[in-house]
Design a binder for these strands. Structure first.
Lengths: 135, 135
DNA sequence: CAGCATCCTCTAGGATACTG
DNA sequence: CAGTATCCTAGAGGATGCTG
C-alpha cells in the first residue's frame, strides 16, 4: 500500500471522529513535539545524558525558562527521565527514556527528509517570492 | 550506525554552526511543518487534489484565515501547487507537488510512531500528574 | 466559492532578577 | 547549579464581514 493511501485512509479514520484533538494522535502527541525547541532537545539527548546547564549551552539561544518548560513536558509525556544528584551545588541529569529513544528512528527519517529537501524548499521560496504579489 | 549516534553526530554538526536557524534544516524546514494545521493539511491532500472548501470542511475547526495562510506557506515552500479554474464561481484546487509527496513517507513513519505511542504518553501523563507538585 | 481585511484575544516565549 | 517568579511583547490564531 502506498504512502498516499496509508495516510489518506488514516485521515478518513480521524475524520470519523471529527479530528477530536484528544483522540487524534497527530494532534495529541505530535503537536507537543512541534514547538520551537522540543525536537532539538530530544536530539541533543540522543548523544547521552546531559545536565541542565549543558543543554542550555548546547542550544545557544534557548532561555532557561523555555528549557525548563520543554523538559517538564517531555518528562510528563514519558519521553525523558530526570535524575537529581543531591550534591552541592545540586546537579540534575536528563536522559531519554525508552519511549523517547523509540522516537529517534522516526525522527531521524524526518530529519533526513528535511536535509535532503532543504535546498529545494529554499529554491521554491525564492521562486515564489520572485513572483510579484499581483499586478 | 544506531539512530542515537546518527542524530547525535548531526547535532554536533549543527552545533558547529551554532544552530544557525537559516542553515539548520530542523529549524528552517521542520519548524514550518510544526504549526497547528500544516501537517493535517498535507495528510488531507494525500488522498488526492482537494478544493479550498473541501479542505475547510474536512478539518472542522480550522478557520478560513488559517487555512489560507497555511496553504500559502505550503505553496511557497514548494510542497503543494495551486490550480485556479476560471469558472464562475471560481474553483481552486490544491494538490501535493512532488516535494510534498516525498514527505508522506517520513511523515507516515512519524505518525505510526505517534499512534503506537499514544497510549504510553497518556499513561505517562496520568502518572506524572498524579504525583503531587511537591510538599 | 475562495479569499482578503479588520479586529481582538491568548499564549508562546524572551529578559531579568531572585532562591535553595 | 538548576531552577522559579514576574513582567512584557510579538505573533498565532479565532470571529466576522466584505468582494470578485
Amino acid at each position: 500500500m502506498s504512502d498516499e493511501n496509508k495516510l489518506a485512509s488514516k485521515f478518513d479514520d480521524w475524520q470519523r471522529m471529527r479530528l477530536d484533538p484528544t483522540r487524534c494522535p497527530v494532534r495529541n502527541v505530535l503537536d507537543h513535539l512541534s514547538d520551537k525547541w522540543t525536537t532539538l532537545i530530544v536530539i541533543a539527548l540522543a548523544g547521552g545524558p546531559r545536565r541542565f546547564g549543558e543543554l542550555n549551552r548546547s542550544i545557544p539561544d534557548i532561555s532557561k525558562r523555555m528549557l525548563t518548560q520543554c523538559l517538564r513536558n517531555l518528562e510528563r509525556d514519558g519521553l525523558i527521565t530526570r535524575h537529581v544528584f543531591p550534591t552541592s551545588p545540586p546537579s540534575v541529569e536528563y536522559r531519554l527514556a525508552d519511549l523517547g529513544r523509540s522516537l529517534l528512528g522516526p525522527l531521524g527519517v524526518l530529519i533526513e527528509w528535511a536535509e535532503a529537501s532543504h535546498q529545494s524548499v529554499l529554491d521554491a521560496r525564492l521562486r515564489f517570492d520572485g513572483i510579484p504579489p499581483s499586478t
